[in-house]
């Protein structure tokens, strides 16, 4: 611009940017920063909050009345995440590969129908599976008898040893459509020439997949993994809908989201505490941030070498 010194104040920029930015700052950025700040405060004698430094975190991580619950929730949350990584993403990959096969009939129908559960509320899905697995209704039980495994039926959602895995499987069942769609899209993006070249070079379909296609879709798989990580460490609804805020039996399904909710609002005899809740939220923030950083710094950089 030649007249930069005399340029009038760019009101139009303000006009376009301000409304959205203001709402984002006030209702997302500020609350997050304020939550981080609050995690350094505790209840004061006068009913207000007083600065207590790292005391909340020390309590959460070392005082056994709190730390038992915290480490339990963290461990369960990692278990929940690993169930998704071991099942949801590989199944999603398999379905995506099948869907991307050339000249497949009914492709769109399969795609639409398999993605359907993803659209529904986690709460609804939780209730549906609760009904199906209920020994009262007996759907799952009869099915198990039908395939000759009747003696292995148990009220999986009600047992300490199996409740979390069962909830993990329900969640996998619901969200398998997301990795399927994203990986499917990136498989379609692979130029035909590259695949043709490998076929001309004598590679069989499996070799083509593992040596040509897989390296090319690794960035998408990495992105799916980090999305899974963030979603799992932010999960709450499924556990709350099926097992309530107490995440029973005996906290065996407690994850960070439910722990955060209980700490903040209290339950039964325990009083809710905004500052302790903020401390749990801060730890969740750090965990998610660490995951995102690992993704950005390590995985993404390595994978870039494979990109075209």
């Amino acid at each position: 611009m030649k007249h930069s010194e005399r340029r009038p104040f760019p009101w139009h920029i303000l006009f376009f940017l301000l409304p959205g930015l203001a709402i984002y700052l006030v209702f997302s950025v500020y609350p997050l920063l304020d939550t981080l700040r609050m995690s350094f405060y505790g209840d004061a004698a006068d009913g207000g909050h007083a600065f207590v430094g790292l005391r909340n975190f020390v309590t959460l991580l070392t005082d056994s009345t709190w730390s038992d619950a915290f480490w339990n929730a963290l461990k369960n949350n990692f278990e929940f995440f690993f169930i998704h990584m071991l099942l949801q993403n590989p199944i999603g990959l398999l379905l995506a590969v099948l869907l991307s096969l050339p000249k497949l009939r009914l492709r769109n129908t399969y795609r639409t129908l398999i993605f359907m559960p993803t659209m529904l509320s986690v709460v609804i899905i939780g209730f549906i599976w609760q009904l199906i697995l209920s020994p009262i209704w007996g759907i799952a039980e009869n099915f198990m008898y039908g395939i000759g495994l009747g003696n292995h039926f148990d009220s999986w959602l009600g047992k300490e040893g199996t409740a979390l895995i069962t909830l993990g499987l329900i969640s996998v069942w619901q969200f398998v459509g997301i990795p399927m769609m994203l990986i499917y899209a990136s498989l379609l993006n692979i130029p035909d020439e590259i695949v043709d070249a490998s076929v001309v070079d004598g590679a069989n379909p499996l070799q083509t997949f593992f040596y040509v296609k897989l390296p090319l879709i690794l960035p998408t798989i990495a992105m799916v993994s980090i999305l899974t990580f963030v979603a799992n460490f932010n999960a709450f609804e499924l556990i709350y809908a099926v097992k309530g805020a107490l995440a029973g039996p005996n906290f065996s399904t407690d994850i960070m989201g439910t722990l955060f909710y209980r700490t903040f609002f209290g339950f039964q005899l325990q009083q809710g505490s905004p500052t302790m809740g903020a401390a749990v939220a801060t730890l969740m923030f750090l965990i998610i941030l660490a995951g995102v950083m690992v993704f950005l710094l390590v995985v993404q950089r390595r994978i870039n070498r494979f990109q075209l």
Binding site: Y30, T35, M38
Partner: peptide
């Protein structure tokens, strides 16, 4: 960058302050 951060960091983590607000 500030907006991009919001894609990855769930707004839920600010719930304590959102309720206050």
């Amino acid at each position: 960058f500030l907006f991009a951060m919001g894609i990855m960091i769930p707004i839920r983590l600010g719930t304590v302050s959102i309720l206050n607000l």
